[in-house]
């Protein structure tokens, strides 16, 4: 098998396993929807307030939903020993990690990107704002998945790692949140958003080129 085929095989295996347990798959999305509907109820349903807070609320909810889905990323594979098989297998471990991360994004990031515009309308975001939200989430959620995979790899051997994972990963995710929410906000008031969008792209490329290697090193440490 060449590396490209192998990558696709990893992604497909992950998707198949995930679809067998579809309730696990849905809970981060339900969480995302619920958190975003809590804010208008807790604040006040005034259009101006919601329009101001919308970008930040939607981005933070997306971040937390991603965090929620990370715990299980390597847990099952560590416990049933299949990760060890992959480590000693013939393919480079960073490629395996990348495959798992891609599957994680397809199952968690992409649904958020699709759901977010619908929720943005309930926050009365203007069309430009909704478009910017979709674009920044599309660029930002893969970076969140890559960062999350690194955090999950570091804590793969730790029991009860939920709070720890948040503590490790949230500071790393902060720049993505800042650029994403800020670009959505700017677009809503009719300003250009080239700057933050390019920066989000740069962060994604940086994360894509470095983090799979860091995650692979972390997995090796966790399996010792």
């Amino acid at each position: 098998m060449n590396p490209g085929r192998f990558f696709i095989a990893i992604v497909r295996r992950e998707l198949q396993i995930a679809f067998k347990r579809w309730s696990d798959l849905l809970s981060p999305l339900v969480f995302f929807v619920m958190v975003t509907t809590l804010f208008p109820l807790a604040l006040s349903p005034q259009h101006a307030v919601l329009r101001n807070l919308g970008p930040a609320v939607l981005w933070i909810a997306a971040l937390l939903a991603t965090l929620l889905s990370l715990n299980a990323l390597f847990r099952a594979d560590v416990e049933d020993g299949s990760l060890e098989q992959l480590v000693i297998g013939p393919y480079p471990l960073p490629l395996v990690i990348l495959g798992k991360t891609a599957a994680h994004w397809l199952l968690n990031g992409l649904p958020l990107v699709i759901l977010a515009p619908v929720l943005a309308v309930t926050y009365y975001l203007p069309v430009e704002g909704v478009r910017a939200l979709s674009l920044t989430l599309l660029l930002g959620t893969p970076t969140l998945s890559l960062l999350g995979a690194a955090g999950a790899a570091l804590t793969a051997a730790v029991r009860q790692s939920g709070g720890l994972l948040a503590l490790l990963v949230l500071p790393l995710m902060l720049p993505v949140l800042m650029f994403g929410a800020r670009a959505t906000d700017l677009a809503g008031s009719g300003e250009p958003i080239d700057g933050p969008v390019y920066l989000l792209g740069a962060l994604f490329l940086l994360a894509l080129s470095l983090l799979p290697f860091a995650s692979a090193a972390a997995i090796r440490i966790s399996l010792d």
């Binding site: 570091l154 804590t155 051997a157 730790v158 720890l164 503590l167 490790l168 972390a218 440490i221 010792d224």
Partner: peptide
Amino acid sequence: SLRASFEDLNQADRASGLL
């Protein structure tokens, strides 16, 4: 916290070092 969450000192050293 990451360092404290490992029982094996060698593992704790390397994981927290990577972080």
